[in-house]
Each structure stands twice: as C-alpha cells, then as structure tokens.
C-alpha cells in the first residue's frame, strides 16, 4: 500500500510542485537565515573573546 501511495505522491507533477514551493516559503527562508546569522554572530563573538584572552 505504501508503494502505491509513493507513486501517486507529489513526484507525479514535479514542475507545478516546485514553482508553488519556492513562492510559498520565502518567509520561512528569511526567518531561518536570520537564525543562522544570529548563531554565526554570537559564535564569532565568543571565539574572538577566546582569541583575545590569555
């Protein structure tokens, strides 16, 4: 049964799927990228603290 579902899944129409996708999750992408940069900035902050201290 699982196999049958796979065949009828979203893969059957990849083009439509992709176009829809990239439009609908741009807010998500912006949010996670904010998160990513937050991680990088804080990490660099402590890294430079480590480098600066003896």
């Amino acid at each position: 049964m699982a196999k049958a579902q796979l065949k009828n899944g979203p893969k059957s129409n990849p083009k439509v799927q992709h176009k829809e996708e990239s439009e609908s999750l741009k807010g998500t992408m912006a949010s996670v990228m904010f998160l990513g940069f937050f991680i990088i900035v804080t990490w660099l902050g402590v890294y430079f603290l480590f480098v600066d201290r003896f």
Binding site: S24, L25, G27, T28, S31, V32, L35
Partner: peptide, 11 residues
C-alpha cells in the same frame, strides 16, 4: 526542526 516550524506557520 527550525525550518519545519517556520514552514508550518507560513503554510
């Protein structure tokens, strides 16, 4: 998980 959460909210 972070992506999935934001995606759930956005969708």
């Amino acid at each position: 998980t972070a992506f999935a959460m934001f995606a759930t909210f956005e969708s």
